[in-house]
Structures are given as C-alpha cells and as structure tokens.
Simulated assay, not measured.
Amino acid sequence: MGTRLQGKVAIITGGAAGIGEAISKRFALEGAAVVVAGLPDDPVREVVDEIKASGGQAVGYLGDLSSWKLAQECVKLAVDEFGKLDILINNAGVFIETNYLTDYSEEAFDYMIRHNTKTTFLMSKAALPELQKTHGNIVTAGSEAGVLGIPQNTPYGGTKAFNIAFTKGLAAEQAAFGVRCNVVGPGPIDTAWTHKETGPMDAKMEKTNNQAVLTGRRGTPEEVANVYLFLASDEASYVTGALYMVDGGITIAKGPAGDQADSFFKKQPKEDLKLQHSMDGHTSIRE
C-alpha cells in the first residue's frame, strides 16, 4: 500500500471497467477511500470486493450519472460513507460506433452526448460544493480524438473536445475556490474499445491505430491510471487547467511511425494491479 492519496476520498465514474478499474485500484492502493461508480450492469460489486480483499476502502454506486438526481446521490454517498470528498474522476464514457458522418446514427450520437458530456457536467456540478470545502480537484477524461479529430469517430471526438474545453474553463473559474481541474487525454489503450472483437473498430482501424503510435502498441489501463494518480495527488499542486496526453506520441506522429518503433517501446510494462475488467466497457447502446 502506498501513501500518495492517504486520507483522500475519491469518486471514480466508470470506475469498474477498462481504464476506470485501473484508476479505482491504483487510488485505493495509494490510500484513498474510493466510490466506484458505474451503470447497473457494470462489474462494480466485483471491483469493490477486489479492492477490499487487497486491504483498501471502497463502496460501489450503481446508477446512470447523466441524471441530476443520481449525480447528487453519488456525491452524497461519498460524504455519508467517508465524511468528505477530495477528488472527482470524470472517467465515465462510451465509444459505440465508428462510421462516416453521413451514416452515423442519431441514436449513437445522443447516447454519447448523454454519457460522455452530460455526466461530466452533472457530476462536476454536484461535486463542486464538497470539493470547495476540501480544496480538492477534478480530473476528467479527454482523448486524442478530442485534440486531433479522427475520421469515422467525429462525434466521439466532439464529446471529448467538449470535456477538454469544459475542464479548462472550470479550472479558470474554480481557482477562486481552491479547486484544481485537469484533463487526461488517452490514445489507443488496450481495452475493449480498441479491439475489433469487442468494440466498434474494424480490423483496418485497429491496425492503423497501432501503426500511428510512436511506441508501436496500445497503452495499458495502468499506464493511464498512473497519470490520473499524479494529477489527483498533492504532487500536482501547481497543475491546473492542463491537458496531459497519455497517447504513446500519436498526436505528434507522422505516418505509420509505430512500424519503426524500437522493440523496447513495443513491449507493455509489467503491471501490478491485477486488473480483471479491462475488456469490459460500453461498446454498444445499453440503457
């Protein structure tokens, strides 16, 4: 057990699958009491049990946080269980369709707006009164897609661009209350979203993604969680309004750079979080 978040209380939305599971477990191992929040069919209870079995503190919250009532309820749970709130991680999001815009479904667009942007807005709004009391912080999920714009992912990139601009504005606004706000921008990460068998990408997109990364491989959920940990910790006390890319260099790459990557870069680092749900996640439209 580490101490980088000792005594802190954190809510992690989308906290039971993919990157969210890694954030929840990393924070718990560093001493935080965590609220693992997810939709009703997410493996929230499993992740909470796994954290407790490793000696950490955790409770689960099941509900659609694009509802104002449920967003408030989730924040109240954190305060009721642990006495305060120091950190909000806006990780919840969906990636459910790849298509040219002329064929992109309105249903998928509406679903992404609801889960990628409205949840970020409502959870931030609900958490801020508590975060102002503790001089806490918010870390929100952006994406390389929100910086570059990606063909056949244009609506998804638009939702992530919202999160980036929203967070920068929030950082400027909330400095008066002692609350820091930052964004993490993952590139292609080894979750259900980036595999053709479990997500919306086809084989060509999957191959192109890996070729476009300077390191020549997907990142791991744990590698992303480590950056969330830094930004949420007191080590980042002078960091606010920042966008930290965790993208293997994809946003500066030219052509199939990954094909030329050194074998050292292509090997994923050894992990220690015992992740069980990296390949779970919302890659289809579910109510």
Rank of each mutant, 00 (worst) to 15 (best):
14 G>R: 08
201 M>G: 01
81 E>F: 03
94 V>R: 00
205 M>Y: 07
80 D>F: 07
256 P>C: 10
259 D>C: 15
1 M>P: 08
106 E>W: 13
100 Y>H: 13
207 K>Q: 14
279 M>F: 15
69 K>H: 11
196 K>W: 02
273 L>I: 00
239 V>M: 11
168 K>F: 00
17 A>F: 05
41 D>M: 10
110 D>H: 05
61 Y>F: 15
101 L>V: 09
206 E>H: 07
199 G>M: 01
82 F>I: 14
64 D>Y: 13
34 V>S: 07
225 A>I: 06
11 I>F: 03
71 A>M: 02
69 K>G: 08
32 A>N: 04
82 F>V: 11
75 V>I: 05
131 L>E: 10
245 M>Y: 09
115 H>L: 13
106 E>K: 09
47 V>R: 01
262 D>M: 06
179 V>S: 10
176 A>S: 05
205 M>F: 07
161 A>S: 15
271 E>Q: 14
138 I>N: 08
176 A>E: 11
25 K>E: 02
123 M>I: 01
50 E>L: 08
108 A>S: 14
14 G>Q: 04
39 L>K: 05
198 T>M: 06
104 Y>T: 01
33 A>N: 15
241 G>P: 01
96 I>F: 01
140 T>N: 15
54 S>K: 13
100 Y>D: 12
248 G>C: 00
116 N>V: 00
112 M>G: 14
286 R>E: 13
182 N>Q: 04
170 L>H: 00
144 E>M: 14
154 T>H: 04
264 F>Q: 14
4 R>Q: 05
282 H>Q: 15
242 A>D: 07
140 T>E: 05
129 P>V: 08
191 T>G: 13
235 E>C: 10
194 T>H: 14
204 K>A: 12
